[in-house]
Design a protein around this nucleic acid. Structure first.
Length: 981
RNA sequence: GCGGGGGUGCCCGAGCUAGGUCGAAGGGGUCGGGCUUAGGCCCCGAUGGCGUAGGCCUGCGUGGGUUCAAAUCCCACCCCCCGCACCA
């Protein structure tokens, strides 16, 4: 063992240790976990990685948290399973391979740079599986070097035939439970690619917003339908006319069984939306002007009028004019009246008010148009604003006027009574829904989808339109029953951090049907729907179960074709007859049963780890699917989500070129230093800003620890029962207890600071105090190394062997007797902390190197006890003062409020339970005894030349500075002087 | 728009679910000192104001309120970040 003098030297040393010990881990198969009946087990998984790039520090953080927990649980004698797989499913790999195949120099360059891979190597990755395989293997090597305590026998990829069989089984189960349904679904679609587009496929990364518009079919005298498009079907009662754009081309076509007039652009869209469309004739918009159409609800005849604002590219290119409530219509109509009728409004064109809304007059659209000073229908900006306001106010506060029913001239009693009952006097949202239903009822309703934020362009330049996909498969997360069960399951789960729970709950609430299959990408085909591949977020929900048996399937050499539904049914659900199933697969009953047993040994999953970005999708699906497939006793128990890793305050991304690869960082800093840096950086819930300094200072701290340990082992003497030694032993036990508690609560950072900072400080205090390190120091170190092993496994292994440990520290356990809380010591320790703090605050104002303290009497412990009882019960300070004042006065204590307050503060710091327990055990607090015993500690920690303790009541001692009277329970009087020499 | 999370001292960031132990942990920066040929690293001290004894005043987005007592509870407002689906 060498003494390390420079940090560079030390990092080289750490790197070599990592190399050495990770190889040994592999050779000795240290982390292979097999069921051991009767022992406690812990099964945890982190989200498997998507190998379209090398593993980066973001993965590194998630995996580290899982690994620390895994190793920690082993220290507590759990049989721990921590496996890892690789997620090939999906399309991103396809995109990268396309770039390679098309020899796109820029893309390849950029991949080469960010991934730190030779261009020539990349060019060889010419199919998706090879591409994924390459990064898979690369990342796996890095994970091993990183020290992840993974059982690699269970590794798999999601395109392995066994996995596909498993996914097919899962989806068959979902289908059987009616949770997998088939339907149509509108998507943003690029006509050129013939592919759905989402945000990252569009120019400027715009998400195409698909909205559904109501079509209301107006009719002409020949029975031809004019489907007008609207978002506000309830305003059909106030239509004065229909708008067409006279400049646009309109098509008369056969749509399904009817003849429709729409803009010619609309015919293409209707075709995409599952309508059969046959164009019969094309006409200019102008020829439609002045036609008379019948309003299917009111029976009124309205005319077609020209308007330039009508966009033929949007919806059907036909718009119903509701001048009372639509600013555009009002403005256009005003233009028309002025130009063609000399400004005189005919009775037919008069706005028909339908909705009453506070803050507006009879005709809201007119109010808004006039208020904003709209000049004409081409005043687009102002009209947009006016429309927004009127729509919003009417939607939120508007009431449908009962007298509006009078616009129904047909006197159709069915329509009238319906309107009276469901529309008149109702708030707008309700009226809207009712009118929509009425339209459907009387057969004049239809709908179409439109890109609401058009134009959205695909990266190829073509405009995105809506296409309705047929035979799309959905997982029905909208099922109420399923939602309720999932909520219930979540209630019983631990979520770390707790704030993330609300995110999951909210996701459960709004989740509806989710398309779960695509026509492109790697993955598993739905057995009954050739061509449809299960999409990546849907084939990764219950795979944790797969880990429990995959290695056995492989070892037994089971033919994949034989892995039918019955196999998974038996292993995971215990369904079917073991002998029959075994026979079908061609394995022994014993092997089959032992797989079932292994699954039951590891399940339920104890902890699931991922980044917080997966809350709204993966993690929620994970809970849902477990609930759907597995019985209640096998539902997962814990979710741990961690924040991002930021680089210099910015999120990592390929485009910024600031992706930090795990492999590179380890080469620079060594695995142990990187792990410790990440652990120090932030508690799990926060984002961690990675900078060189954090990692370097972690390395320095490690070096300091290493050198200190080395020094002690050289200097150690045989002493073991001095006060210093006893103090050190007890301090160690306190650390162990708190460490266990912290890690049980996944407070990775807090525990790391304890082990690598506080424990070193305490050891240094001991060294200063004791001068010669004794046996206790070696014992301290022996346990300390164990506590380090979850964070910095490699140096811990090395130290473990140096100390004469056998095997691996990774397989060692913390002595049970150390994990016991020593309340008495805890009390004394915290009491001393308080005294030291007090003295420090005096030393802030007065300088000196000699301190005398006067301790309060043991007889006054009853005050502490009564205050502690009150604190424990949550009783107010004033209440306590009131209760105690008489007794305090009797005891000759003035200023009871001040005394009680100071005791209360001390008690709160120490902890009322600790105080009470201490009193109960010892019968009273002898502060003089405690301080005398730890005199050396106080002097050492404060760097004092002299530290003396007196009893305040001892009349034989000098009353320096009159401080005797300042002694209160838990708060000694303090006197500071400067020594003369 | 809907939903989730936030706004703390020069900066970053704990603490806020159980109100007093909070002038507010821990970093960083800055200033002073030590170490060093020098720099770096490291160590010590200081870092709202006042005070020669453990104290007082002012303070945790803004404005109110509850309370003996609020960064912590309640109300209103302002601002920031992140999701919103077939995409991993």
């Amino acid at each position: 063992m060498l003494s390390m003098s420079t940090i560079d030297e030390f990092i080289v040393f750490l790197r070599n240790l990592a190399e050495k010990w990770s190889n040994l881990y592999e050779e000795d198969r240290v982390f292979e976990a097999d069921p051991s009946e009767g022992e406690p087990k812990y099964f945890l998984t982190a989200a498997y990685m998507y190998p379209n790039a090398p593993i980066h520090v973001g993965h590194g953080r998630t995996y580290l948290i899982a690994d620390v927990l895994a190793r920690f649980k082993r220290l507590l004698r759990y049989n721990v399973l921590f496996p890892m797989g690789f997620h090939y499913t999906g399309t991103p790999v396809l995109v990268r391979v396309e770039a390679i195949l098309e020899n796109k120099a820029k893309e390849i360059e950029s991949m080469s740079r960010t991934f730190n891979i030779e261009v020539e190597t990349l060019k060889k990755l010419r199919d998706p599986v090879s591409f994924a395989r390459y990064f898979h293997e690369l990342s796996k090597t890095v994970m091993k070097k990183y020290g992840l305590s993974i059982d690699w026998r269970r590794e798999f990829t999601t395109v392995d035939p066994e996995y596909k069989s498993f996914i097919q089984w899962q989806f068959t189960k979902l289908l059987e439970k009616d949770l997998l349904i088939r339907g149509t679904y509108p998507v943003g679609w690029c006509p050129r690619h013939g592919m759905p587009v989402s945000m990252h496929d569009t120019e400027g990364d715009v998400e195409p917003e698909v909205g559904e518009l109501t079509l209301i079919k107006f009719t002409d005298e020949y029975g031809v339908k004019y489907p007008v498009a609207t978002l506000r079907p309830e305003t059909v009662l106030g239509v004065t006319n229909i708008w067409v754009n006279p400049e646009a081309r309109y098509c008369i076509s056969r749509v399904n069984s009817e003849v429709w007039v729409t803009s010619c652009e609309a015919t293409t869209k209707l075709k995409q939306q599952l309508k059969s469309v046959e164009i019969l004739e094309e006409v200019g918009g102008g020829t439609l002007v002045d036609r008379e159409l019948v309003n299917p609800v009111t029976g009124e005849r309205v005319r077609v009028l020209p308007a330039s604002f009508v966009n033929p590219k949007f919806a059907t290119g036909l718009v119903m004019s509701v001048p009372a409530h639509a600013p555009y219509d009002y403005a256009a109509l005003r233009d028309y009246v002025e130009k063609n009728l000399g400004g005189v409004w005919t009775r037919e064109l008069m706005p028909k008010p339908l909705i009453q809304v506070s803050g507006y007059g009879e005709i809201p659209a007119r109010n808004a148009v006039e208020q904003l000073g709209v000049r004409s229908q081409s005043d687009v900006e102002l009209l947009e604003e006016a429309t927004k306001r009127v729509y919003r106010d009417e939607f939120e506060r508007g009431i449908f006027r009962p007298d509006a029913v009078a616009y129904v001239v047909s006197r159709d009693s069915r329509v009238l009574s319906y309107l009276e009952k469901h529309v008149a006097g109702k708030p707008v949202p309700e009226a809207r829904e009712a009118v929509r239903a009425l339209l459907e009822e009387i057969g004049v309703y239809d709908s179409m989808y439109e890109v609401m934020n058009a134009p959205v362009r695909c990266r190829c330049g073509s405009e995105v339109a809506v296409k309705v996909l047929e035979n799309q498969w959905f997982i029905n997360y909208g099922s109420t029953e399923w939602k309720n069960l999932t909520r219930e399951a979540l209630k019983d789960m631990r979520v770390v951090p707790e704030e993330a729970r609300r995110g999951i709950e909210a996701t459960i609430d709004w989740l509806r049907e989710r398309a779960c299959a695509r026509t492109r990408g790697l993955g598993t085909e739905l057995p009954w729907a050739p061509g449809w591949v299960v999409e990546a977020l849907s084939d990764s929900t219950i795979y944790m179960a797969f880990y429990t048996v995959v290695h056995r399937i492989r070892k037994l050499g089971v033919k994949v074709e034989k892995l039918g539904e019955y196999f998974w049914d038996y292993v995971f659900l215990g369904l079917g007859d073991a002998r029959e199933v075994a026979a079908k697969i061609g394995i022994s009953v014993e092997d089959l049963e032992s797989m079932r047993r292994e699954f039951l040994f590891w399940y339920p999953l104890d902890s699931r780890h991922s980044g917080k970005d997966l809350i709204p999708n993966h993690l929620t699906f994970f809970v849902f699917n477990h609930i759907a497939i597995f019985p209640r006793e096998l539902w997962p128990k814990q979710i741990v989500v961690n924040g991002w890793v930021l680089v210099e305050g910015a999120k990592m991304s390929k485009s910024k070129g600031n992706v930090k690869l795990l492999g590179n960082l380890m080469d620079t800093y060594s695995p142990d230093a990187l792990r410790l840096g990440l652990a120090f950086g932030a508690e799990v819930d926060q984002d961690l800003d990675l900078n060189e300094e954090t990692v370097l200072s972690a390395a320095r701290q490690l070096m300091k620890i290493y050198n200190t340990i080395r020094e002690i082992l050289h200097r150690v003497s045989g002493d073991s029962e001095r006060p210093q030694d006893i103090w050190l032993r007890k301090t160690l036990a306190t650390h162990v207890v708190n460490y266990v508690e912290e890690l049980e609560n996944v407070r990775i950072r807090a525990a790391a600071l304890r082990v690598y900072v506080k424990m070193l400080e305490d050891l240094e205090t001991y060294l200063k105090w004791a001068r010669e390190p004794g046996r206790a120091a070696v014992d301290y170190i022996a346990t300390w190394v164990k506590l380090m092993s979850p964070y910095t496994p490699f140096i811990a292994e090395e130290l473990w062997r140096t100390l004469g440990g056998r095997g691996y520290v990774a397989k060692s356990a913390i002595e049970r007797e150390l994990v016991v809380r020593d309340t008495l010591f805890e009390f004394e320790q915290k009491y001393v902390d308080l005294v030291i703090e007090d003295i420090k605050s005096v030393l802030d104002v007065v300088s000196g190197d000699t301190v005398a303290v006067y301790t309060s009497d043991r007889e006054l412990s009853w005050i502490v006890e009564r205050v502690a009882e009150d604190v424990a019960r949550g009783i107010d300070l004033s209440e306590t003062v009131r209760k105690l004042s008489r007794d305090l006065a009797k005891a000759g204590i003035r200023q009871p409020d001040r005394v009680v307050k100071s005791i209360r503060e001390a008690v709160s710091y120490i902890g009322p339970e600790v105080v009470l327990k201490y009193l109960k055990t010892t019968g009273g607090i002898d502060e003089f005894e405690i301080l005398s015993k730890l005199q050396g500690l106080v002097a050492t920690r404060l760097g004092l030349k002299n530290f003396v303790v007196y009893r305040a009541s001892d009349t034989s001692t000098p009353d320096l500075g009159g401080r005797k009277s300042r002694a209160f329970p838990l708060k000694p009087g303090i006197y500071v002087t400067q020594s003369t020499y």
